[in-house]
């Protein structure tokens, strides 16, 4: 069996170097489990899904809820992204949407997760993102699907930074762009 490599694995060393100054922390969080959940939010199945997740599905656009080690982000009026640790087992979720009441699809390989944290994280992302990322309007509990450096991403604000979920095939490009955008903040 071939060795598994994460999409931005080749950037680990450069991320570490860029993180040394303390102004910024860049890292890839590889192999997180990501599940695309589609279900009618008004249905019984949605209640069952919420029961399995331990939190209600957020119905307010652009919001995310945390439940233990799970994050549930709003992607659309009937679509959510569940982010869980590697190896998360989701048979119960599958069961909650069985019989055509919804769908749970493992999309873990679709995107990888980049961590952009530290005091200058917002400045770095602002180089390529049109959204207002200030914590007063975009803090923990929010999420956004938008473009960062013309690449589609899901942004999840954390306490001291952001998770940037980017398609695997764009991960190397975005990693290179982040390192370039970070240059002026690392002096």
């Amino acid at each position: 069996m071939a060795e598994r490599r994460s999409p931005a694995a080749a950037f680990a060393g450069r991320f570490e170097t860029a993180s040394a100054s303390g102004a910024l922390r860049l890292a890839e969080l590889p192999f997180l489990t990501q599940l695309n959940v589609r279900v009618d939010p008004a249905s019984l199945a949605a209640d069952e899904v919420a029961g399995v997740l331990g939190a209600p599905l957020p119905t307010e656009p652009g919001t995310a809820v945390r439940s233990g080690e799970l994050t549930v982000a709003w992607l659309g009026p009937d679509e959510w992204l569940v982010i869980a640790p590697e190896g998360f087992r989701y048979e119960l979720l599958r069961k909650a949407v069985a019989d055509g009441r919804g769908s749970v699809v493992d999309v873990s390989a679709q995107r990888t997760t980049l961590l952009v944290a530290g005091p200058r994280a917002r400045d770095v992302l602002a180089h390529g993102c049109a959204l207002d990322l200030h914590p007063s309007v975009f803090g923990p509990g929010r999420c956004a699907q938008t473009t960062l450096a013309r690449t589609q991403v899901v942004l999840l604000p954390q306490q001291d930074g952001f998770l940037v979920l980017v398609r695997s095939s764009f991960a190397a490009y975005l990693a290179a762009w982040l390192l370039d955008a970070a240059t002026e903040h690392l002096l």
Binding site: G62, P77, A130, T147
Partner: peptide
């Protein structure tokens, strides 16, 4: 109507 104001390129 879901996400609020966004730039045209999206």
């Amino acid at each position: 109507p879901w996400c609020g104001p966004r730039e045209e390129a999206e």
